[in-house]
Design a protein around this nucleic acid. Structure first.
Lengths: 196, 196
DNA sequence: ACCTGAACACCGTTCAAGT
DNA sequence: ACCTGAACACCGTTCAAGT
């Protein structure tokens, strides 16, 4: 008659999914391994089979966040056509949308408290995002929309602006209205910054 | 003979100072009210007289961080002469230096988990930084280094870039070398972005 | 006014034991 | 292989009581 003995599915995936939900709905302070276990109907020691400690779960959560952001940015490019200006605008829009919809997760992704080895993996994930921007800028150079020169000397500043604007959206330094009205200005400014 | 009875000085200030030191040296995970109290030689309940809970201490720490950053940026302007390019460069340099020297604190300053009322105060503090950038851009318009138009439509993008670069330095997405070599590129890009 | 000391509920982590 | 249940050390918060 016992309706739950061992957890039937993939506890690791279930923990990550539930943790992200808690992060979104109640914030990082409400994230506890014991409560997660309770909600999933397993003992409080069960999570340790899948994450050696709480930080390991946070690291995995941040890494999954980068995967999702990467997908979102990639999707924005597939849908943006071929114009450099449109593609850059779509990239900025997608990053900002992610920041607004996943503020606490984005905070975690760039947090400063990760384990050293996880930090490397997270930096690599962030660099994959940077590489997308570099590719876009390189295309812009080929089409004559972006000035010549080593791509990273233009791409890093552009990526920096994207990151900063998403950060302001995330931390609510800019209100929703300011984000909306400011986005076009930021895009125009980036275009000027890298124009031929 | 008892060398410590009541804490003799300003416990509130002592808590903030010690908390910032712990944050810097051991990271946010090592910050505990009880340990802070232990280190200062008071009972574990004493901090509650000065901060209603742990979050209140974190809020105060973040606010103090904004004050210090504000001072650093203001000082950079006083030392930078009158050239727009030099002043913008000094502002960027000062923000990045702060990020490198106070990574965990900067993370906390823009964190997403603050109390609603503290969040407002922190946003206001961030906006004071933004106002400095706006003032600089307005000066640039007067000297003819920056194109005409509503100052916030140029100043917000510039401040966004400063913030993003400091964020990359903070979270070690860019290595120390990349920060050093990238700073000049970012400055040149900002100048292009707002040039007449 | 400011702090103590005990108490409470909760947490992360570990480990022998179970299936 | 995966999970349980008890145990340990620690934490944040509250509150009557002390000075």
């Amino acid at each position: 008659m016992q309706t739950r003995r061992y957890h039937h599915g993939d506890l690791r995936a279930a923990l990550l999914a539930r943790a992200e939900q808690t992060l979104r709905e109640k914030g990082p302070g409400a994230l506890s391994l014991r409560e997660l276990a309770r909600e999933l109907g397993v003992s409080h020691a069960a999570p340790s089979r899948h994450f050696k400690d709480k930080q390991a779960l946070l690291d995995a959560l941040a890494l999954a966040g980068f995967d999702r952001l990467n997908e979102a940015l990639t999707a924005s490019q597939a849908a943006a056509g071929t114009s450099f200006a449109h593609r850059l605008g779509a990239l900025a829009r997608a990053y900002v949308d992610f920041a607004l919809a996943n503020a606490a997760l984005l905070d975690l992704m760039y947090a400063v408290k990760h384990d050293p080895e996880a930090s490397e993996a997270l930096s690599a994930a962030a660099q994959r995002l940077g590489a997308m921007t570099m590719g876009l800028v390189a295309d812009g150079q080929r089409s004559g929309d972006v000035r010549e020169g080593p791509v990273e000397r233009i791409g890093i500043p552009v990526f920096t602006t994207l990151h900063g604007f998403a950060g302001f959206a995330m931390s609510r330094v800019l209100s929703a209205e300011e984000v909306e009205s400011g986005l076009d200005d930021v895009i125009a400014y980036m275009l000027r910054g890298c124009a031929a």
